[in-house]
């Protein structure tokens, strides 16, 4: 979301934020427009009743739509803590938390989407189950390749979809997906080619590299949690054009 729109009150953003953002994407603001938006934000703070009256069509974001963001954030942070803790201490107990983290991350988006589009609840639950079973059955530790492959392959679609649902701009979307999958993919390649060696110690830097996946999930989850409104809009989005 444009930084300028963030100066508007939350209720106002929920009502007009998406369409104003589409407008700014179609016509990037000049200096005068930026000043106009600042005055507009001040006006919106001074007249909150405008949104209250015009909010009939606004989609008030149920708390249930914020839960997936919370799950993604918690999963991402837990993923990082488990990997760093396990990598530093070498204790296997830390790594077992990775399964919980993976479940939270991979279940968060399908769960949230299914909650919005009721007819597709089954599909969402199936995605959750498939993600969970796949993550649970793949071993971590000596057989690090399938586990990292699961992160790269299973999580790729989920995180990419999450960045779209979070309403991230194209640049930030690419940054999130790049941070989430570039380093883990490199780690997978290194391990698969045997470049990293077979010793436990050599896996530590690779494990730390994979933590970026958790960081990306946590960041996208925070956006999902706090932005709310356009997050689980099932309607397709496109580049805005004038409609007459």
């Amino acid at each position: 979301m444009s930084r300028l729109i963030r100066f508007y009150p939350a209720a106002w953003r929920a009502r007009y934020g998406a369409e104003l953002e589409a407008l700014l994407a179609a016509r990037p603001p000049k200096l005068g427009d930026r000043l106009d938006l600042m005055f507009g934000a001040l006006d919106a703070h001074l007249h909150p009743e405008l949104v209250a009256a015009g909010a009939r069509a606004a989609a008030a974001v149920p708390i249930g739509h914020r839960i997936p963001g919370l799950a993604a954030t918690a999963g991402g942070l837990l993923f990082v803590v488990a990997l760093v803790g396990g990598g530093v201490s070498g204790a296997e107990g830390w790594f077992s938390w990775i399964w919980v983290a993976l479940f939270l991350m991979l279940a968060s988006l399908p769960g949230g989407y299914a909650a919005r589009v009721g007819g597709r609840v089954g599909l969402g639950l199936a995605a959750i189950a498939a993600s969970f079973i796949l993550a649970w059955t793949l071993p971590w530790g000596p057989n690090v390749v399938p586990a990292v492959a699961a992160i790269v392959l299973v999580g790729a679609g989920s995180l990419a979809l999450a960045t779209v649902r979070a309403g991230l701009g194209r640049r930030r979307r690419w940054v999130a997906v790049g941070l989430g999958f570039g380093p883990p993919a490199v780690a997978l390649l290194v391990v698969a080619m045997g470049i990293g060696g077979q010793g436990e110690g050599s896996l530590v830097p690779l494990a730390l590299l994979v933590t970026l996946y958790g960081v990306a999930w946590a960041a996208v989850g925070l956006v999902l949690m706090f932005r709310g409104s356009p997050t689980f809009d099932p309607e397709p989005r496109g580049d805005p054009e004038p409609a007459r």
Partner: peptide, 10 residues
Amino acid sequence: GPGTLYGALA
């Protein structure tokens, strides 16, 4: 301006 536009629309 976009701020004026949406202030007026509201």
